[in-house]
Design a binder for these strands. Sequence first.
DNA 1: TCACGTTCGTTATATGCTCTAACTCCATCG
DNA 2: CGATGGAGTTAGAGCATATAACGAACGTGA
Lengths: 215, 215
Amino acid sequence: MAKSDPTTPRERYRTQVRAEVMERAWEQIATAGASALSLNAIAKQMGMSGPALYRYFANRDELITELVREAYRSLADTLAAAAADGAGLAALARTLRTWALADPQRYLLVYGTPIPGYRAPEDTTAISREIAGTLLDACAAALPPNTPATPLSTHLAAHRTWAATHPAPPEALALFLTLWTRLHGVLSLELAGHFTGMRFAPETLFEAELTALLP
Amino acid sequence: MAKSDPTTPRERYRTQVRAEVMERAWEQIATAGASALSLNAIAKQMGMSGPALYRYFANRDELITELVREAYRSLADTLAAAAADGAGLAALARTLRTWALADPQRYLLVYGTPIPGYRAPEDTTAISREIAGTLLDACAAALPPNTPATPLSTHLAAHRTWAATHPAPPEALALFLTLWTRLHGVLSLELAGHFTGMRFAPETLFEAELTALLP
DNA sequence: TCACGTTCGTTATATGCTCTAACTCCATCG
DNA sequence: CGATGGAGTTAGAGCATATAACGAACGTGA
């Protein structure tokens, strides 16, 4: 894309190596999960010796943080692109599902079981808010007029610091939270393999949740 | 409870050591997550040297499997006890939430991100079906008469091998799946800390999901 | 053109983990 | 009472993260 940055050759080499490391890391994560990610194995795959990678990532956690950041960024961009294409709330939801199924471990890296004690850096929460913003816009647009207040929406009207800057009404916040948690419920159980024993199509359940929420 | 089994003293000692190992394992998991569980650290805590524990567990995976089994067993018993006390579907759902909040890592060990390649042993899936059975009973009982068929319920009518032995109608199966995924959606995001930034009460969302599903 | 300093990659090392092997010791059982 | 088998030990292989110290390559500036 940007072919001539004012960067030195060394910097460009550096970012390229970092990119290759992350690429291999994604492969490892896709096949063995995030907990099995090994800097050493990546280095050997790249023909380098183990400690060399510590020039590029301070430690294993920083690499994982970078992967989380990339995953968040990818999801935020995917949803934003769909929204820019005029996708409504249902289309955004299906975009989310497609994104999750394309790389289950990437979804689980972001929304799965966290490592206790791991503190997400500030900018990833910013991207998370960006994702929520895109969905919130669609929720506000999809909200039928004269939607009645519910206990949840009145509670959120009093606790909306997380959406303080967003002009959506409390009922849209309630719709967003409900949609988010329901989609995540289906997706996470599906990706975790908890449906594999029972031979039904998770997509049917996903669509049922959509039509239940967006009549 | 059963104070005089026809077991040898050696066997009783063995089961007692196993129990203590698992107790320490739960402590470790609660504070550092399942991926940080260390047989070595447990052995040192118990005043033994590392390899001693391999007399009691073939390997780390077997210990984790045993923990998963115990967690499943605990949940199944808790729900069964509540159901035996006459708890309806809403009460069972709240029982599930209480159980999950009592030990978040225990819930996530069972329903969180799985380790790719890990194959759950047969009897844990049996307990899982037992849990589903308890909830299915309550779903069948809570189902309003003349509940209309939906695309989901008709799909499940044709794909109900997982509930082949259960007499619940397809609409009850649909209710079960919907309830399960919605509750899991709220619980898993709450336990994973994805709500901590936004200062609202997850319980309100949980209750909203309950009233939306059980009018 | 050439010397200098930054950066990169190496090996060596400390530490911790899982897990196997070989050995000792003691309780239990016939 | 003695043989057996289970329990615990240390030693060690193999792999991981991570640091330290060293050598080589590279780009820059005189």
